[in-house]
Design a binder for these strands. Sequence first.
DNA 1: ACCTACTATAGGTGTGCGCCTACAATTGCT
DNA 2: AGCAATTGTAGGCGCACACCTATAGTAGGT
Lengths: 166, 166
Amino acid sequence: MEKGTPGSLGEGADATPLTPPSLAGLSTYLLSKIGKAARGRLAERLATRGLRLWHMAVLAALVDFGPHAQRELAERLAVHASDVAKVVEDLAAAGYVERTRDPADRRRVTVTVTDAGRAALAELDAAAREVQDEILAPLAEEERAQLAGLLRRVYTRLHQEGVTPV
Amino acid sequence: MEKGTPGSLGEGADATPLTPPSLAGLSTYLLSKIGKAARGRLAERLATRGLRLWHMAVLAALVDFGPHAQRELAERLAVHASDVAKVVEDLAAAGYVERTRDPADRRRVTVTVTDAGRAALAELDAAAREVQDEILAPLAEEERAQLAGLLRRVYTRLHQEGVTPV
DNA sequence: ACCTACTATAGGTGTGCGCCTACAATTGCT
DNA sequence: AGCAATTGTAGGCGCACACCTATAGTAGGT
């Protein structure tokens, strides 16, 4: 069958096929690819708990900033309000958040994280750090910090320009 | 209406809502977010030419490594063969590639990039670099190189482990 | 000649994501 | 009281992506 012919894959027969340098030379491409892998692996872990990325994001917002009206969650996370409602519904069903009508404005529903919710987020965070260790395995501690700093600055700018979290 | 109340968004009323630190502290999260932005912006530009990311990836593979059988493209890019067929069909319709039956094995179709295809890839590459400039705007030249190096190492490892391009 | 394996291709499926509309409850304004 | 705007919620739409099956043509071994 085909093997080391001139037009073939250009690497050892059983080696991993090379990524085209035209792509591999683009940081954009690498970011996209690595980001997708990171996202995918985290999503896998969340899925084992029946959760998706937005669930984690909402829990994080509640833990970090305290109770929100759903409208505020939507704004902070840059998601459609109707989608927030669905996520919150799931979290409430799991016992991770409580919804209470705001007595001052009965249109609003105040969402508050429960102890179970805090515990869940802690677990999700641990899972995320495991994934991070997998992904950043080739980097030394110092390099990871360097990377984190660079990414942080890039993200901050993007976020100011209006990029949706998660 | 509501404004600086203790439970509110936690930043100036008109400022960009803060990302929960629980998320922003995860490089995984930043990678995912930045990667998605990068991918999205590039996809936008490609869309104006009626192309998607895989079209660019296939062109890049052909330009960088020469003609491939479709099976080889599928292997190199880690896509299902049936999906490669569709992408190649599009590229052929656009005049960017030519398909010829391999006379030695008439099951195979050898895909070759045309001059128009090379020109198209050059344009796509330019677009990608524009996007990259947008995304990495906050970084100095030296920092971009630093980032590229780190990403390169992370990607290489991931790729060895079997991660799909694009 | 026959059977098995491989290639390309058509077509369909499922999933996740983001987006939008419609509607009911409630509020504030006048 | 009446009207316009806001909030939460249900439901649906469309897109991109990855995946999988079936089919027809071809190759190679026995």
